[in-house]
């Protein structure tokens, strides 16, 4: 597996956020999902940087909706995960599961 196909941890989080959000995945909701569920406070620059990279790899696609006054007349850019993205995500999970198989770590140590 080449490096290009490998998903970083943050990329995985972003793809999972897209799956969790479904039809409502755009910049702000993704950022908030990362913050509220994953506890990762990031800037929009990071969110878009990652999403753009994933789009280049063909893992996600995006489309612009109608302009909205609450955004100063700008439109939301909705993202959705592509089949290739879902494959990459489940591969990443398999890889982690294989590595975790048979490994035990004290819960305490992780929480500290």
């Amino acid at each position: 597996m080449g490096k290009g196909a490998h998903l970083g941890e943050f990329e995985q989080l972003v793809l999972l956020a897209l799956l969790r959000l479904g039809d409502d995945a755009y910049g702000m909701s993704v950022r908030r999902e990362l913050q509220d569920t994953a506890g990762r406070e990031v800037t929009f620059g990071t969110v878009y940087g990652t999403l753009d990279r994933l789009e280049e790899k063909g893992y996600v696609s995006s489309l612009s909706a109608d302009p909205e006054p609450v955004r100063g007349g700008r439109s939301r850019r909705y993202f959705q995960i592509e089949p290739a993205g879902e494959v990459a995500l489940s591969r990443a999970r398999d890889m982690m599961d294989r590595m975790w198989d048979g490994v035990r770590v004290a819960r305490r140590a992780r929480g500290a």
Binding site: G27, M28, F44, Y48, E68, V70, R71, R76
Partner: peptide
């Protein structure tokens, strides 16, 4: 991304 980010920023 500047237009996208601006929109999200204003909204949030």
């Amino acid at each position: 991304v500047r237009q996208d980010v601006l929109g999200d920023l204003h909204e949030e």
